[in-house]
Design a protein around this nucleic acid. Structure first.
Lengths: 132, 132
DNA sequence: CCGCATCCATGTCGATACTG
DNA sequence: CAGTATCGACATGGATGCGG
């Protein structure tokens, strides 16, 4: 829903509907590859376009570019072009982007916990099967 | 991207790729209306289907139902049917869903702050215009 | 090397009408 | 009341090829 969400939130903001603060935050990193890119840039540091591509082999050029451009427009990452030949482009997180990292870390931890307890449940049901 | 995200994450989980904990968490509330519904159920308490509809006038039956069913399947909300006539259905948040509320509150607060400083920037540029 | 442009299959969402 | 069914418009994302 990402593009849709971005458009919706923009419309709401234009129409003065400021009751959508959480949707606004969500629209920052809810996009294909966005949360992963942001996490890497926040934790690891600077990446070049090609490095991100290798990091996300499933992402097409088109999608990767789109996500990066949107995050740049939102001010959470920055893009630096070095007009060498061949061209070189660096991506890094901004201070604003960095301020989102705690939330993403919280999401990471929640996910880890949840996955752990889901594995537990699987073990339990296997044991129950064994008892029968 | 929501449905896509859900499918992707499910596939990743099936394939034993447990390195996607944040995407997994994201898939819990990244869906049309999900974060708003979850927030209301978490803060206000129980809602009936019709009440949610009135709360989200833009949401169609189809979408509202879909989002509620998915969140139920994910175990973050629960659905109770009272076989009266006419039928009555209550939706409430589960303990698991409640454990997501701090993250959503953090997102709400980040959004509020961000919107505030964006308004500030608008004021600044208006003042600059006035100075000229 | 880092993209953008185009085409096309698929997916998503709204509107409307109908049911137990 | 609380949904389901169906149809059609629209958007999304993958593949490919081109360009500075």
């Amino acid at each position: 829903m990402t593009d849709y969400l971005r458009k919706e939130v923009k419309n709401k903001l234009i129409n003065g509907d400021y009751s959508c603060a959480k949707e606004f935050t969500l629209s920052m990193f809810s996009g294909k590859w966005k949360i992963v890119i942001l996490y890497h840039l926040g934790i690891d540091g600077i990446y070049r376009f090609g490095e991100l591509k290798r990091l996300l082999p499933q992402a097409s050029n088109k999608m990767l570019t789109k996500q990066l451009r949107e995050m740049e427009a939102d001010g959470i990452i920055s893009r630096t072009i070095y007009p060498e030949i061949p061209v070189r482009v660096d991506y890094s997180i901004t201070d604003l982007g960095q301020s989102l990292i705690p939330i993403i870390v919280a999401m990471y931890e929640w996910g880890e916990e949840r996955l752990k307890s889901m594995k537990q449940d699987v073990k339990f049901s296997i044991n129950e099967e064994a008892i029968k």
